[in-house]
Design a protein around this nucleic acid. Structure first.
Lengths: 229, 229
DNA sequence: GAGTTGCCTTGATCTAGGTCAAGCGCATGC
DNA sequence: GCATGCGCTTGACCTAGATCAAGGCAACTC
């Protein structure tokens, strides 16, 4: 890793490293790689040995699985600024990535060696606590995700997504889709066809208005009622 | 907590406490309760303030959510020997339980104060690591659960469950259902009717044999093929 | 014994959402 | 220009599983 000072500056922006001192950061930087990936490129594949975890500086990335019959299920969309794959670190020595990681948009990724971080962690309980907090948050998101998948219909999930994206209390609110509708469909676990139909149904009911990737929420209260939120 | 020596002996059996010394255990025991609950009794309800986490000494417990229309989705079945609700500890000061916890079978539960454990954790990085490992495992279980819910059919999920319960490499293997079929259905996110039909279909195909809550897996290879595992 | 209650099964029907197929709009490249 | 390709939409079907409804059966209580 060159440009040490700059790199340290960057690292400070990562929540996981916030509690570390100069020496600890230096230790981690020794084994850190910074990689530029183009859209479509793979960072790692399901089943590969997990020896690093990552921070996405820029770009967009998806973590997904492929079932035996070839269907793709997106587990998580990673945005710039997020860390990911840090959980596997504690699963034992020779663990493997349980998902594929592929760039949706090109960008820059920082790759940290598990071994180095492991060593540093031993010296900082505060960092342990931050890590624990982050994982708790994710755990809760998953509980919500499981609930969404089992207890909600496709329409409810779509509305749910729109409400989450929208600024609260703005009426009419505007939502810009940062991903293609195909990708969104995969994230909501429905087919592109169903997503398309759902949008047009909501539009015909006067609840939303669609202009390409921009969606206006015309009747937030009506949407809420429809999704029973 | 009375019978200090006995209690310490018990605590040693809990993985989370394995690395703690006498003084730390004593500190935790000061605020520990041991409760006996009967079948159907609630330990805590969704939305209650989370001030404790738990270890199930004996009995069976379910963690579940209820949707606005009254459907129940089981997030996790907790068996004797497991700890649970320890993740919420790190969600911040006044966090709340995100699920209901209700006994399926009566049993004994140990209740530990988050605050005490928090303090002790600051002195034991090893215990932090254990906690991190446990949460990582749970995180992965949830990822798998999400996959199961989205990529698999009801029949596949049922077979999947049976295979997980069965001893590996025993043929024919026997599975004993520790819960009612209604509860199992809720766990697999299907209706009791569908579960019943699925069992009879598999039985008619000669793949399994049902005797009440005991199920014999007659053709493990055939089941595997059917579920595409 | 008869009645009640809870769990399970079975059958008949309904429906949300998936699948398949065709076509549209818009970009890119030659 | 025209072709190729990709994202998106629409329509016509189909199927897995939910829903509704009616028993069956075993464990109780009286």
């Amino acid at each position: 890793m060159q440009h040490h000072a700059e790199a340290v500056q960057m690292l400070r922006r990562i929540a996981l490293f916030a509690e570390l001192d100069e020496a600890q950061l230096a230790k981690i930087l020794e084994t850190t790689q910074r990689r530029e990936l183009t859209a479509g490129e793979f960072l790692f594949m399901q089943g590969e040995g997990a020896e690093q975890f990552f921070w996405l500086e820029s770009g967009l990335l998806k973590l997904y699985r492929v079932s035996p019959i070839g269907e793709e299920k997106i587990i998580e969309i990673v945005r710039a600024g997020q860390t990911f794959a840090e959980a596997i670190m504690f699963m034992g020595q020779r663990s493997r990535y349980p998902v594929n990681a592929q760039m949706i948009e090109g960008g820059v990724i920082w790759c940290f060696a598990n071994a180095s971080f492991h060593e540093v962690l031993r010296g900082s309980v505060d960092t342990c606590f931050r890590l624990l907090a982050g994982m708790s948050r994710r755990l809760h998101q998953h509980v919500n995700e499981i609930e969404r998948l089992t207890l909600q219909t496709a329409t409810e999930r779509v509305i749910n997504y729109l409400m989450q994206q929208a600024e609260p209390s703005v009426n009419p609110a505007n939502v810009h889709l940062p991903i293609t509708k195909q990708t969104l469909a995969a994230q909501l676990s429905i087919t592109p066809e169903t997503l398309s139909r759902t949008f047009t149904r909501l539009a015909k009911a006067g609840l939303i208005e669609i202009r390409g990737n921009d969606i206006a929420l015309l009747d937030v209260e009506g949407l809420r009622r429809k999704a029973m939120l």
